[in-house]
């Protein structure tokens, strides 16, 4: 009789231990039981898998203090897997991480994906995911991605660069038709940027006083503002027209 009781206790303990170990190994997502991020991203990105290249016209307004950049227009060219070319005569600073539509950026094989929480976005139900690029050379350390809508789309992306700059991009889509295809593609992207305290201020240079009229040839950009915004409008999408590799070669 005593032997049977001991066996039951041992079995219960083993089961409990196993469950505990599984929970610990699986991490918070499994522990919280959210959607499978790999499946979600695969579903979101699947429609765009037909894209081999695209061309789109962008018009942007930069509203960053101390960045007096005129509104500009540019043509964005994209070619798989991740090549971009901006064609414009104007000076065109496009925030990294969010402003340029890259349907292959969040591929599971290139990133570590995890579900964080269910977080509605402006009243729209959405799931919040964390995306960490596996490549250490990437300029973006991590992303937070809000996915929602019907069909499921990426509604918002917040990127954190290795320099500590945050860029939160709210994406609004339009259905774009081309030949027999139709894709939900970005129509407007509103990016809010937050710049960290650089912490590396140049020491008071004994040779140069403040506001010195002596030109130093090219000054370094040492002070960036704390916050800013960039608004981008997309128009004239076309994809798979065939773009030459030479377009993406650095001149």
């Amino acid at each position: 009789m005593k032997t049977g009781k001991h066996r039951a206790i041992a079995l219960l303990a083993a089961l409990f231990l196993s469950a505990a170990l599984q929970a610990a190994w699986a991490g918070p997502a499994d522990a919280a039981a959210g959607p499978d991020p790999v499946k979600v991203f695969a579903e979101v990105l699947k429609p765009y898998s037909v894209i081999r290249d695209y061309t789109v016209r962008v018009e942007a307004k930069v509203r960053i203090p101390d960045f007096r950049v005129p509104d500009f227009a540019a043509t964005v060219y994209f070619k798989r897997p991740d090549r971009f070319h901006l064609e414009t005569k104007n000076f065109a600073p496009m925030p990294r991480g969010a402003a340029l539509f890259d349907p292959f950026r969040f591929r599971p094989e290139k990133n570590r994906l995890s579900w964080l929480a269910a977080e509605p976005l402006e009243g729209e139900p959405a799931d919040l995911f964390r995306v960490e690029p596996l490549d250490e050379k990437e300029k973006i350390r991590s992303y937070q991605v809000w996915i929602g809508g019907n069909p499921k789309r990426i509604l918002q992306v917040e990127s954190l660069s290795v320099q500590g700059v945050k860029a939160r991009a709210r994406i609004r889509y339009a259905l774009v038709r081309q030949d027999n295809d139709a894709l939900w593609l970005p129509e407007r992207v509103a990016v809010k940027m937050t710049f960290p305290e650089r912490g590396v201020r140049p020491q008071e240079n004994l040779l140069y006083g403040p506001d010195s009229p002596v030109s130093r040839g090219m000054a370094r950009l040492e002070d960036l503002p704390s916050e800013g915004a960039v608004e981008i409008a997309y128009a004239g999408w076309s994809w798979n027209r065939g773009l030459d590799d030479s377009l993406f070669r650095k001149k």
């Binding site: 414009t88 104007n90 065109a92 600073p93 925030p95 370094r220």
Partner: peptide
Amino acid sequence: LLAILEQDFIIGG
């Protein structure tokens, strides 16, 4: 000049 900018922006033009 550009290195600082290119950390956070893709520069066109």
